[in-house]
Computed example of a mutant assay.
Amino acid sequence: MVYLSMLLPASYAFSAEQVTAQQFVNLQQGNTSFAGFRRAHAKGACVTGYFEPSGQLSALTQVPIFAQGTTPFIGRFSIAGNNPTAPDLKSPVRSLAVSFNISPTQQWRIAMNTPPVMAVSNPHDFYQQIAAIKSGPQALKAFFNAHPETQDFLNWKASYTPNQSLALERYHSINAFYLENSQGEKRAVRWYFEPQGHPMDVTSDTDNALFDELSARLLKGSVKFNWIFILSEETDDENDPAVSWPEDRQRVVAGEVAIEQIDMDLNAQCQSINFDPLTLPSGMSATADPILRARSAAYAESYRRRAKEKLLEALQ
C-alpha cells in the first residue's frame, strides 16, 4: 500500500496546538524564498545506485527488496537550510534520501539525517525549536534549558564533528517504523546507513566542497554503505523520536547500498520527488510518532509550493 500523505490539505494541523503544515513551512522558508526549491534541504544533488540484500532481514518483513536480488534506487544528498547556493561546509546537518520503485503500485521513500534522534518529541516543540534557531544562540540555549528531553540530542551534538565528505557520514532514520512479517507480527525498528569509505586526499574550500568531493570520489568507484537496522525491545518507545535506544539493542545488517552516479543538474530526476517518509510498501507501517506525521505534512506543503512555482515559471 502506498501512503498518499502528500495529498493532505495544506492546513493540516499536526499538533494539539494547531501548528499547521503551512505555518511550519513558512517558518522554514523565512523572509527569503527561492522559487522552485525545497523549503528545507534546498541544496542537493541527485544520485543513483542499487541495494543488495543480505537476506538477514527477510524473516522480519515482507518488503521484497530484503529477500530478492539487487534493487535500483534514485536518491538525493543534501544539506540543511532553504538556500540552494549555501556553502556546504557550514551546514550542521547533512541528509540522504532514497526512493525505491518496488512495483507498479508500491514505492518506498526514505529521508535520513545525520542526527540519530530529534531534539524534541512533538511537532509544537519542534516548531518552537526552529523559531529559537532563527532567533539566535541565546534563544536556542534558553529553549534547550526549558526542554530536558533534548538531552540525548545534545549529547550527540557535543560528540559530532561534521565530516569533509558526504560519503563518510552516518545517516539515520530518526523516526521508528514497524516491520511486519508474513504472520502479521510487527517489530519496531530504526535504521542507519553506515559508511564503508575512507578519507580521500581531496580538499576544497569552495561553496560546493561536499558535492565536489563526492563527484571526485565517484570517479574512482561506487560509494557504499551498510544498511543497519536496530531492533526494539518492549521497553523502547517507538513513538518518541527524542529518546535514544540502548546501545545493546540487536542490530541486523540488511545489506549493502551502492551509489554509482551523481547528477548536479537542477532538473535531474530526484529533484521532483517528494521524499515523504510515510510513503511505505507492504511489510512496513508507521508508528504513532507525531513528528513522523509532521514531517510528512510539511514535505507535502513544500512540494506543493515548489511545484506551483515551477508551473508558473513554465507558463511565462
Rank of each mutant, 00 (worst) to 15 (best):
V2A: 14
M6W: 10
L8R: 07
P9R: 04
P9Y: 09
A10Y: 09
A10D: 12
S11L: 10
A16M: 10
E17M: 13
E17K: 14
L27V: 02
G30R: 11
G30K: 12
G30N: 11
T32E: 13
S33K: 13
F34I: 00
A35D: 04
G36A: 00
H41G: 07
C46L: 12
C46E: 15
G49R: 03
L57G: 02
A59G: 01
Q62L: 15
A67R: 13
Q68Y: 13
T70K: 15
F73N: 03
G75K: 13
N82A: 15
P84T: 00
A86L: 07
P87G: 12
K90P: 01
K90R: 13
S95H: 02
A97P: 00
N101C: 07
P104C: 10
T105C: 13
T105G: 09
Q107P: 01
W108P: 00
N113K: 11
P115L: 12
V117S: 06
M118E: 14
V120Y: 10
S121E: 08
H124D: 09
F126G: 03
Q129W: 15
A132G: 06
A132W: 12
Q138I: 08
Q138C: 03
A142V: 01
F143C: 03
A146C: 12
P148E: 12
E149Y: 11
E149H: 10
E149C: 13
Q151I: 10
Q151N: 10
D152T: 07
N155Q: 14
W156T: 01
W156Q: 02
K157D: 14
A158F: 05
A158N: 11
S159Y: 02
N163V: 02
Q164G: 15
A167Q: 05
L168F: 06
L168G: 03
L168K: 03
I174E: 06
N175V: 00
N175R: 08
N175F: 11
R187C: 05
V189E: 10
R190Y: 00
R190K: 08
Y192M: 04
F193P: 01
E194W: 08
Q196Y: 02
D201F: 07
D201H: 06
S204D: 14
D205E: 13
T206N: 04
T206Y: 05
A209N: 04
F211Y: 11
D212S: 07
D212C: 02
S215R: 09
S215L: 06
A216P: 00
A216S: 04
L219I: 01
V223S: 13
V223A: 15
V223M: 11
N226Y: 09
I228H: 09
F229K: 09
F229N: 10
I230K: 11
S232W: 10
E234L: 14
D236F: 11
D236S: 04
E238I: 06
N239H: 15
S244Y: 03
E247Y: 07
A254I: 04
G255R: 04
V257I: 12
I262L: 15
A268H: 04
Q271R: 09
Q271F: 09
F275A: 03
L278A: 05
L278Q: 08
T279V: 15
G283L: 05
G283S: 02
M284R: 03
M284T: 01
T287G: 07
D289K: 03
D289T: 01
L292A: 06
A294Y: 12
S296G: 05
A297T: 01
E301C: 03
R305N: 05
R305T: 00
R306C: 06
K310D: 14
L312A: 07
